[in-house]
Computed example of a mutant assay.
Amino acid sequence: MDTQADTIPLAQADERISRYDWPLLATDLDSHGCAMLQNLLTADDCDRIAGLYDTPQHFRSHVVMARHGFGKGEYRYFSYPLPSLLDDLRTALYPRLAPVANAWNERMGITARYPGSHETFLKLCHDAGQVKPTPLLLRYIAGDFNCLHQDLYGDLAFPLQVAILLSRPGEDFSGGEFVLTEQRPRMQSRVEVVPFSQGDAVIFAVHNRPVKGTKGNYRVNLRHGVSRIRSGQRHTVGIIFHDAK
């Protein structure tokens, strides 16, 4: 696929990912259910990816959120082959996150384990009939928002995903905070607001994560969303590691 995003030096994806302190990020994920990758993309990267939104040939579907009760705003799912930067980031991020996912499943008493490479995991998805790519590009304008939700598309779902802010808070838009909530058994829900800058990424739990209590580990249920855009326009790209039916 010949896209604007393919003009980025794509061989740098793994180098970019490897510069982060992954043991510290794993600790953040265990403690908070999310972790930040600051400056994952450059401003030029962000502008090129956001610029793909109005070229429908790069996407397999277009969702207007209000039609489905998801909130207000819209997004497009990329088609295969993905723009190379997103494909390479997806491939490079996965093996750093699979050990966290496997440790979480062990603590929660879930038997499923995730293979070490994304290629192998995608083959499992495809063998299960989940063949549609899930990375997506979202666009919000003033008044738009995204209701709290979970991105689960089939029986095989990787428990972590990544969102990258492509727009500049305070310049391109105002409002539009990324919000995570945790529902703990017999407790009030906990809210986390992620402080994004352009090019920053957040890794976060898709569905459940383990929390250590006085009697061992228990599961908490997570949802994520975006608060109301007060002004301007906001683009985000989401990297989901499992494919959909």
Rank of each mutant, 00 (worst) to 15 (best):
R234L: 02
L122M: 05
D28P: 13
C147T: 12
K132G: 04
H32W: 07
S167T: 11
D45W: 03
R230T: 09
Q57A: 08
G175L: 06
L29W: 05
V191P: 02
I203F: 02
T7K: 12
G216P: 00
S84W: 10
T181F: 08
D30N: 12
G170T: 10
F196C: 10
R90N: 11
I164L: 07
Y114R: 06
E171H: 13
Y94W: 04
L122N: 02
R219M: 13
A98C: 02
L180Y: 06
D44V: 06
Q183G: 08
R139N: 01
L89E: 01
G143F: 06
Q57V: 11
P115Y: 08
Q4D: 12
I8W: 15
S79G: 13
P185Y: 05
L122D: 05
P185Q: 09
K132V: 10
M36E: 09
N221G: 14
R139T: 03
C147F: 11
C125N: 13
A26E: 12
H58Q: 08
R168V: 14
K245F: 06
G175Q: 02
H68E: 00
L165A: 05
T214C: 07
H126E: 04
V220A: 04
Q233H: 12
G216A: 03
P135T: 03
T111K: 15
V193T: 11
A66E: 12
A92V: 08
Y20K: 07
K215P: 08
T27E: 13
D47C: 09
R60V: 02
V131I: 14
Y153M: 07
D54C: 00
R209Y: 00
A11L: 10
V211D: 04
S31M: 10
H118I: 14
